[in-house]
């Protein structure tokens, strides 16, 4: 088994983790049209909820389920109590970015007060990797890959075959027109936060199970690779986020095989810069045809 194959296997797992986070961020951005710098904290809160839940139950799936619910609830509350009132009175993007960055700092600080700034440990059964084709994956790795595929497939079905999904795409296209055709855009945005909070929570749980020990900066440090994947794919484009995740995940892990793993973040940024130079709007940018009869 070549080291490259193993690195590629790690890259696919890494891509799956990033994809879970990136599709959530991309969907939220597509509908609300502003980035959420507190996205990382949705991952962190889910991971810390799992740590708390382990004092009650040793069932990782149950712990993750509660973590996902808490993350979804936090996303919904952030939108309802902070972002929605701001959206009503402030239309400037920069203000919304500052608000979400502030929320990020507040959640980080609250977690530091509750848990301290040291690392916490999530007990995960140790297991050795098995050869699956050219890759070496643990059961948890396989579960994460399957979950990522499943989530993307479910979101695809939601967006294309349900009334809510079509309303989400309509709001993403043009919120004013969506209102004119009778869509309650506020309700669509609110449910989108709930949904993307849940998916981000799933990403946080998966990340926590993968690395086992983490601090209140877990999600914040993961924010960079998530942004890289979303921007590489084309901001607001869910399928672009998946492709971006594959590129960022695989390139960072494979490069880690040849270079020190300490360069992973640098490599992620490098990929981001190179792609933006070649495709300034990312791989999946779309352009509206300006055609007249």
């Amino acid at each position: 088994m070549s080291g490259f194959g193993q690195a590629l296997g790690f890259g696919i797992v890494s891509a799956a983790l990033i994809a879970l986070s990136a599709v959530a961020m991309s969907m939220q951005f597509g509908v609300t049209k502003h980035a959420n710098f507190a996205h990382g904290e949705l991952l962190t809160i889910s991971a810390f909820t799992m740590v708390l839940m382990q004092k009650v139950t040793q069932n990782l799936f149950l712990d993750a389920a509660v973590g996902i619910c808490v993350s979804a609830a936090l996303a919904w509350v952030i939108n309802k109590t902070i972002l929605q009132p701001f959206r009503r009175v402030v239309k400037r993007l920069i203000i919304m970015l500052i608000v979400t960055a502030s929320v990020s700092q507040i959640v980080q600080s609250l977690l530091a007060v509750g848990f301290g700034t040291n690392y916490v440990v999530l007990s995960v059964p140790s297991e050795t990797g098995r050869h699956i084709g050219p890759f070496v994956w643990t059961t948890i790795d396989v579960i994460i890959i399957v979950l990522a595929i499943l989530v993307v497939a479910l979101l695809h079905i939601l967006l294309h075959y349900t009334s809510f999904g079509k309303a989400q795409r309509a709001v993403a296209d043009d919120v004013d027109l969506a209102r004119i055709v009778g869509i309650n855009s506020g309700a669509v945005i609110s449910r989108t936060w709930l949904l993307t909070g849940a998916v981000a929570g799933l990403a946080g749980s998966a990340l926590a199970v993968t690395i086992g020990t983490f601090s209140n900066l877990l999600g914040f440090t993961f924010l960079l690779v998530t942004f890289a994947a979303v921007i590489v794919g084309g901001v607001g484009k869910m399928y672009g986020a998946v492709v971006g995740s594959l590129i960022v995940g695989i390139v960072t892990e494979v490069s880690g095989y040849y270079l020190s793993s300490g360069y992973k973040q640098v490599i992620a940024l490098g990929v981001l810069i190179v792609v933006l130079l070649v495709r300034p709007n990312g791989f999946f940018a779309t352009f509206v045809a300006d055609t007249k009869a």
Partner: peptide, 8 residues
């Protein structure tokens, strides 16, 4: 203007 949803 902008009277259709372009991505739909």
């Amino acid at each position: 203007l902008a009277n259709v949803f372009p991505s739909l």
